[in-house]
Design a protein around this nucleic acid. Structure first.
Lengths: 196, 196
DNA sequence: TAGCAGGGCTAACGTTAGTTAGTGTATTTT
DNA sequence: AAAATACACTAACTAACGTTAGCCCTGCTA
């Protein structure tokens, strides 16, 4: 077999990570084998190790790429001078877009993170917990300002984030409405559920 | 080691299935090993095979137990003479209760079904698809009767069901509100998001 | 009390997994 | 053009997996 083909300015490692994300999404991390991944990449299994240290490195690259993007957008949103409901809408749209346009990675990060091993595991869990607290704080603020119903903020966050991970079903389904309609529908229901 | 202890009128197989559900929930189906399960049950791995045919039998017992319960409640709800919104609320409460009180099995059925093998896999997918269509039909009916906002029913179902599977996070979290409060909060947000 | 399942056990099987070692060839750098 | 690096290959190792075979004890039934 020939070399791994790299489009434009991607490294070979990037190519492997990207194909790994697809494979992990389809089969699950544990069920996906390095030999299978190698096949997809177009190379022998052993050759992968010229570019990566281990299977688990693939997983934590994927998970932290995603987690860091979310941390970053949260920084931005917190800094903006808009209402709580607008902040939430902005976050939700970012999540929905991620799930629609970077499906493989986001999905893997969401469902397979438990196979990370320490110290990555604890690290990831911390980042996740922190993110949710910041999200909940925005909701709490909205309740104080009477923009939002009196509900438990933690529960609200849980509903929002998991509802969005349901976009997985949308990807699976045969006759899907288009991505933009999906986004508008989700915003209508979710933000509508919070509004006073 | 001694025999498998069976409380009341459970068979030894039931005990194994129940402990398998817990293990599969914690580790995931693929990552859970029969030797580990045997340890938990208090027996050697080989001894499990006196009661079950295979590891995969455990998974499909769990998945279909749950799926059948949901089919059954849907039959009941469809037959009742109440408004669409009330039907939806009833279904949601059943789902929430399942997730709170039969967490292990419901969670495994929700997240690990993809490791079923045919014919169970296709079967399960069919049951799932059918269930969601029936759910969507109720929402569609509600829209026609102007009880519910004009939204895409399929998207609404997807949001509801996945939001509920987020109760997983509630189980994980240290300082949780109690189950009844959780239920009320979820109903408020979800049903509130649909109502016109 | 003899017999026979039921249900444990140990040992071992064939597979598959992730990964390493060592070698050769193509590509890049000097 | 020569030297060095990158990267592919084959072969193999060890560990773990699900599962089977065959044996032995125990407690119910005849």
């Amino acid at each position: 077999m020939g070399r791994i083909k790299t489009d434009s300015n991607l490294t070979r490692k990037d190519v492997i990570i990207s194909k790994a994300a697809t494979l992990f999404r389809e089969k699950g991390y544990k069920a996906a084998s390095m030999r299978e991944l190698a096949d997809i990449v177009g190379v022998e299994a052993a050759s992968l190790y010229n570019h990566i240290k281990s299977k688990s490195e693939l997983l934590h690259e994927i998970c932290f790429n995603v987690a860091n993007r979310f941390s970053h957008i949260m920084d931005e949103v917190e800094a903006e001078k808009i209402s709580s409901l607008e902040k939430i809408e902005k976050l939700l749209r970012f999540h929905i877009n991620g799930m629609v346009h970077h499906f493989e990675e986001v999905y893997v990060s969401d469902r397979e993170w438990k196979y990370l091993s320490d110290p990555y595991l604890s690290n990831f869990q911390n980042q996740r917990r922190t993110y949710r607290k910041r999200f909940a704080a925005i909701i709490e603020d909205g309740i104080r300002k009477k923009e939002i119903k009196k509900i438990d903020p933690t529960t609200a966050v849980l509903i929002m984030l998991h509802a969005i991970s349901g976009i997985e079903s949308w990807h699976r389904s045969k006759q899907k409405i288009n991505g933009d309609e999906l986004e508008e529908n989700m915003i209508t229901i979710l933000v509508g559920g919070l509004k006073k």
